[in-house]
Design a protein around this nucleic acid. Structure first.
Lengths: 160, 160
DNA sequence: GCTAAAGTGTAATATTATAACATTCCATTT
DNA sequence: AAATGGAATGTTATAATATTACACTTTAGC
């Protein structure tokens, strides 16, 4: 078992190999169900994103991807990222201009992202209650919510 | 009275002249109290930001500022923005890479930003309840919160 | 196999933001 | 008033992030 891969870098030590495999399988399933094409490039970019729980920048991804395809250009990465986000398989962290894989892509979710400013890991957590609270507020202002950016920076349990 | 300036562009029609004056006066007070220097450049940039309730990009600010000082460079704007944000007089909207003036700078606040994707106005609202809800959640994960990005896109009452 | 749409290749460029170092301004001390 | 030290600004260059435009290729459905 590869139980200990990366176990120092995430809040909850886990089988990261399994975690990635799950994300990738879910991606195949989701794309299949929606008639979206998880092409080789897109799949590989998703793998690279999911390789750690740290948010990764587009140009970092490009550098990694170039190891396999030296002619790759920024637009290759941005296209793949656009697709993955469209499919709900990845999220952009606006406050970092960086990206993370979505680990709950198969179920609809209302999530917040907790970002450890020390170890740089980002955790997507269910924040349904927070959404309720915010929607109550926006309703009272007759504001029709469409898309929420909810990113909490701080220190994870391992780093504090 | 100038009651109608911009009244088509904000959710709650208001005396924008007074709104700006208030923000500028508060800025003077706050900086005075904190021993921070609201220099001519910084004050002018704040005025330009507060001239509307639409989020404004750094390079848009630069274009406006250049009308008065054609030799101005990007770093001039970014320095002023850094100062204004440090002083709590302006906020960056991460999901837009743009900036708004803070209308409650004189009182500590836990706010969310509602952004109308149609008219582009951005409203900072008190979201204490939302913060409570989120902090409960982050506490349960032993995450120490430090800085929250909370930006809700959608349609304001005038646009929906 | 043909076709239309989606995906990819390639080059160029737009947009956003910062680094590095010189100079000026300004409050304080002398 | 002159000296001084730190903050602010000027200036140049460049880094980092993201998109446009157009040509070519692949793929799914007919």
């Amino acid at each position: 078992m590869q139980d200990n891969i990366n176990n120092k870098t995430v809040q909850h030590p886990h089988n990261h190999q399994g975690c990635m495999q799950h994300a990738l399988q879910a991606a195949e399933q989701i794309c299949g169900a929606k008639g979206m094409r998880l092409t080789a490039i897109r799949k590989r970019i998703l793998e690279l994103i999911c390789a750690s729980h740290k948010a990764i920048g587009a140009y970092e991804l490009l550098d990694l991807f170039k190891l396999e395809d030296p002619k790759a250009k920024p637009v290759t990465i941005y296209r793949a990222l656009d697709f993955l986000m469209e499919a709900g398989l990845a999220h952009k962290i606006e406050s970092l201009n960086a990206f993370i894989g979505c680990l709950q892509a198969e179920t609809p979710h209302k999530s917040a992202i907790l970002i450890c400013d020390n170890c740089k890991n980002a955790y997507e957590i269910d924040a349904t209650a927070v959404y309720e609270s915010l929607f109550t507020l926006s309703d009272s202002m007759q504001f029709k919510p469409q898309c929420l950016t909810l990113e909490l920076h701080g220190l994870c349990v391992s780093c504090s």
